Simulated assay, not measured.
Amino acid sequence: MATLHYGSGDPVHIGDRELAHLKIVIATKLRRQESFTLSWRHPEGEPGGRSTIWLHPSIPLRFTFDEPEPPQLNMQWIEELMHSANSSGGIMLVDEVLETPEPATPSV
């Protein structure tokens, strides 16, 4: 289980794979000096509901991962997360989008 440390608040526990993908989107937005929200559903074992935090470039942020090697990234999932990051609702951590193969072009 990976952890997102943001400001002085409680750490947010997220799966390593999920946080690896979120890290790409969050770093891109913050590098552009863009503020946004991040929302997620509480995992099993925690009180039900969901949480939202406001991410701003001036607030300290740290990502820690249990796995020493980064996972192979799913670009389709990153695009989906980036699309939500650019919406008025901010990033909503959603389940991984499975990559779909390009349809074969029929030979003529």
Rank of each mutant, 00 (worst) to 15 (best):
L55G: 02
K23V: 01
K29A: 00
L93K: 11
A104G: 06
T105H: 00
F63W: 11
M1W: 01
F63V: 11
N74P: 02
D16F: 02
T37S: 14
T64L: 06
P70C: 02
P106H: 02
T100D: 02
L81E: 02
G9Q: 15
S35E: 09
D66W: 09
I78N: 00
L61I: 15
S8N: 12
L19I: 07
H83L: 15
S107T: 07
P68V: 06
R17F: 08
E18Q: 15
D66A: 15
Y6F: 09
H13S: 13
S51F: 00
M82W: 03
T37H: 07
L98K: 15
W40N: 06
V12E: 07
G15S: 13
S39C: 06
P11H: 10
I24L: 14
H21N: 03
G49D: 08
R32W: 05
D66S: 14
L98G: 07
D16E: 04
G9T: 11
M82C: 03
E99N: 02
A27V: 01
V94W: 04
I26M: 07
F36H: 02
G49F: 06
P60I: 05
V25I: 10
A104Q: 11
I24R: 15
H83T: 15
T3N: 01
A104T: 14
P71A: 06
S58C: 09
P57M: 04
E96N: 01
M82V: 05
I26T: 03
H42R: 11
L98Y: 03
